[in-house]
Structure formats: C-alpha cells, structure tokens
Design a protein around this nucleic acid. Structure first.
Lengths: 196, 196
DNA sequence: GCGATGACAGATTTCAATATCTGTCATCAC
DNA sequence: GTGATGACAGATATTGAAATCTGTCATCGC
C-alpha cells in the first residue's frame, strides 16, 4: 500500500537483502520483508514458496554479482599468465574489501552460504570455468604447459589452492598484515606449476 | 576423594578432554571436570587460572598430538618429493579420519580452535617448519628447484595451498566422493611448482 | 479472473524468573 | 606449610509461558 509499483520477485529480493543487512540472518523474518515493502507477508509467499527459497534466491543474486564483477578480468586482453594473476588478485581484493568494509554483512552472507551449499557449488563451478578459460587460452598461447586433458582438473586445483584467499570461511585471516604476501607466494607457486 | 592419586595438570587435562567429548564445548563446565575427578572445582583452579586457560591447554595438547603423528613422515627416508606427498597425504588422512570418525568431536575441537588463535598460529608454524625441512632436503638433493632464499615463504605457500585439505573449517567437504581426487590434483600442482 | 489480504494452526523465538557456573578466598585436614 | 575444600558474589545459562513467525487458504477488491 505504500507504493503503487507492482510487486515483483526482484523488488522482494532487494527488500530481503536490505532486511538481512539491517537485522542479520537470525532476526530477519518474512514479515519484516513484507513490512519493508508495505504488503502482507502472504504476498511474499506468492513469489517465493518458502523462507528458505527466498534466502536461497538472495544468496544466488549475491554470488552472481561476484561472477559478473570478475568476468572482465577473465576476458581481459594480454597474456594468460598475467590474466590469471589479475583474476585471482581481483577475486581476493573483492572478497577482502567486502569482508573488511562490512564484517557484519560478510557474517550474514556466510550464514546464507552455509545454508545453501547447492547454490555455492554452482557458484564455484562458474568461477572454475572462468579459470579454465584462462588456462585454455594460456595453453593455446604456449604460456602454460599443463597437458590439455588435465585442464579442467587443474583449473579446479588452482581454485582449491587459492581457497584460503577467497573462501569466506577464512575471512578473519584476510586482515592480517602479511596476508598479501601469503597470497602472492601462493600465486607464484601456482604460476610456476602451470609453466613448469 | 574417588582416588588417592595426586591431582596433576595432566590428569585434569585428560578429564577435561573426556568431559568435552561427552558434553560438547558449550556444556562442558569446570564443575563437570572436577566431578569427573572426584575433587572440588576449587582444586582445578589451583592448576589452571581460568576456564579459558584450561581449554587452551587442552587445545594445545590435541594439536601437539598431530605434530607428533606427522613427524615420522617429515623425517622419513627417501627422496624429498615423495616425502612431501607422503607428509601431505598423511596430514589429510589424519584430519579426514578424525572428522569422519567422530564429527561431533571434530566440531568440539573446531570451537576450541576458534577460541585459541594464538595456539593455532604456533601449531601452524610447527607444521610449516616440517614442510620447510622437507623442502630444504629436496633443495640439497636437487629434486626441488625453488631458490633457497624463498624456501620459508614457499613452505608456507605449500601449507596455504593445501589449506582446504587440512583446515578443520573445511571438514564438511572432506566426505565428498571426489575430495581425494581434488587433493591429488592440488598435490600434483604443488609438485610441479617445486620442480619447475 | 487475478493478485493481494489477513485469520489461523503449528512451529519457533523471546523474555524474565530461576538455577547453575566461574573465580575467589577464608578455612580446614594432614 | 601445603594442598584441598566449599560458601559466596557476580556472570552466564536454562526453562517454560507468552509472543511472534511460517506457511496455508478462504475471501476480498479491482
């Protein structure tokens, strides 16, 4: 009743994210979301079957934003080894910035991530695909010497090897003064492996 | 009063571990520990200034056991590259076995680990030292080509790159059917880097 | 007809009273 | 004298009654 705009899934997701931001994952309720939109909570249930589905959709939206922010680095011009370092650095910077800038929001999304492992798995697949794209280009360019058949497994290995620098479970460690050096050392290790 | 044995720090630690195992980290109290030993809780405070100090000591003991279990692999005979793979595999197997065999106990120690980051940092230093020892041997043998000056940073990078396979924060992922393959892929990556 | 509503049942959470725990210390037993 | 005890104060946790939330659905207004 507050506005005359149509109630869309998108508007509900936006309001849900705002409510999560304000109240945190433990206290955010569907009633809060409805109140923020000026509608009854029954209307929210018209667009999302359950509260869990709503939170899952918010999680998915948030993760997709990361994917989209990274795509330019995956598709950047230049040699593949530099692109890989650029992409990994961008991922680390993005996550570290989010964790440092608003630790509470980070904690909120960590809870959501824990609730929606299937969504997170798909997200990981997308990130690994971006890495795989860079590795394939590097293989064509002759910069990377990993056998072509191993590329998918290697892309995932690169993702896993850098886990500590993008997995939110480690966000507490990113504020350490030497985390940048530790990250650089792992990237160096990975680059050596790919060029071996 | 239950026994005539002397009350030692060691006996208290053993009882504390048992109480933690039985009740979990949230419900285990100093009174429980005293009860298990048949003494008053005041006597426990004679050996440990606070409950936090007691829990820290238990954490330290538990982590030291891991260090001791791994030392044979660090000091094993044979070429350094094989020793490194053996050591990493032993670490992963050890952690996975503990996590799979008794998930609740694992969750308990994850809580303790979260409470005692200083102890954990020292533990990590010990593990990194074992890796560094293997890398140094590999350098002498000519198996690893990493510059000698980089060895300490590289040892830590190897530890970080394999984080996902020994950090308890990831224990939920270790039961996945492809975790063994993912681990092998990362070890392969690390070996390629060291021999590059 | 179509999306929105709000009353409702059962599940979950909150809140305040009650109980237990942590850490101290004067006292006790040997 | 040494080490153990248990009463105590303040902090923390438990409990159960009351409030709120989730998810459904018959009904409403456009």
């Amino acid at each position: 009743m507050a506005t005359t705009e149509t109630l869309t899934a998108e508007r509900i997701l936006e309001a849900t994210e705002e409510v999560l931001r304000r109240y945190g994952p433990a206290k955010a309720t569907v009633v809060d979301v409805a109140r923020a939109l000026g509608v009854s909570h029954g209307s929210v249930y018209r667009h999302f079957r359950t509260k869990a589905a709503l939170r899952e959709a918010v999680t998915e939206r948030w993760l997709r934003r990361t994917i989209d922010a990274l795509r330019p680095y995956a598709d950047a011009p230049g040699p593949a080894d530099e692109r890989l370092t650029g992409w990994l650095t961008a991922l680390f910077a993005l996550k570290r910035e989010k964790a440092g800038g608003d630790p509470e929001l980070m904690a909120t999304f960590q809870v959501l991530i824990g609730e929606n492992s299937a969504v997170v798995d798909r997200h990981e697949d997308h990130l690994v695909e971006q890495i795989a794209g860079i590795l394939a280009a590097g293989h064509r360019e002759g910069v990377f010497t990993v056998p072509e058949a191993d590329l998918p497994a290697t892309a995932r290995a690169v993702f896993h090897a850098t886990d500590r620098f993008h997995n939110p479970a480690h966000s507490a460690e990113w504020s350490a003064p030497d985390s940048g050096a530790a990250f650089a050392a792992v990237v160096t290790l990975v680059q050596r492996a790919l060029k071996a």
